[in-house]
Design a protein around this nucleic acid. Structure first.
Lengths: 124, 124
DNA sequence: TAACAATATACCTATTGCGGAATATAGTTT
DNA sequence: AAACTATATTCCGCAATAGGTATATTGTTA
């Protein structure tokens, strides 16, 4: 019953917002910070939560760490992520996040370096 | 973000099994006990959990209490229940539950009395 | 009304999750 | 090497959850 693990990951607002953003493509943590506007430690811990449960994958990119949805996902995860996207399309929170992301990162860090604006001031 | 409440309900194995069974139609608690083969208190508490969060509705029917999915559900709940059914169709646990239910209750308690076998011996 | 049957609730305990503050780690730049 | 930047981890306290035991509630039947 892998479903339980999926739904445990799904039942936190911050994690849902992260998954929604990652559905667009890979993102480094600073992008997530910029969009979510939550404390760094909070985001980092939720990313760790998702990582240990296989919902996201991470790779280092110099100073940054780029998170993405895993390349291969189970059928169960795939359909549930699709369902989440379906719901997200109508939810103001998710839509606002997507809009912020588009403004903040017109170019996503597909394979190269992270083009993050320095967000030191927003770090706390 | 009603989604959170839905996923909180979804992230327990017993609750998922209950929702899967109720997707077939209304059921009284003794049917659920017969199929799930879990202690009465456990089932009752999970039903209460689902009830207080609006995922199921209950009506008294003489000595029995019949649970069902609510008549009107939000779009979010509807698509997520559909997604759950999609996943359940391939999961051995859910399939076995459905098979047990079909054997135990060929006639569902649609509107009338609950045709429960006396399951006193199974009560613990 | 007394016994019974079906279900719910109260109480307890252990576990888990969440958030914050402080600190650690690992790369990079000077 | 030292300072810096980005991110992770540790430690803490608190709230929520899960499961069990015992008991209560509500309706039915004798």
């Amino acid at each position: 019953m892998e479903l339980i693990r999926i739904y445990e990951c799904f039942c936190d607002r911050t994690r849902l917002r992260i998954l929604n953003l990652l559905s667009t493509g890979p993102l480094c943590v600073c992008h997530l910070q910029g969009v979510l506007a939550e404390p760094q430690v909070k985001i980092s811990k939720h990313l760790a939560y998702l990582r240990t449960r296989g919902l996201v994958a991470a790779r280092r990119e110099g100073n940054w760490i780029v998170y993405r949805l895993p390349a291969k996902v189970s059928r169960e995860l795939r359909v549930n992520l699709a369902c989440l996207q379906d719901c997200a399309a109508e939810d103001p929170v998710f839509r606002r996040d997507q809009a912020r992301l588009a403004r903040l990162a017109p170019v996503l860090p597909e394979a190269g370096a992270c083009a993050c604006p320095r967000i030191t001031s927003r770090r706390q």
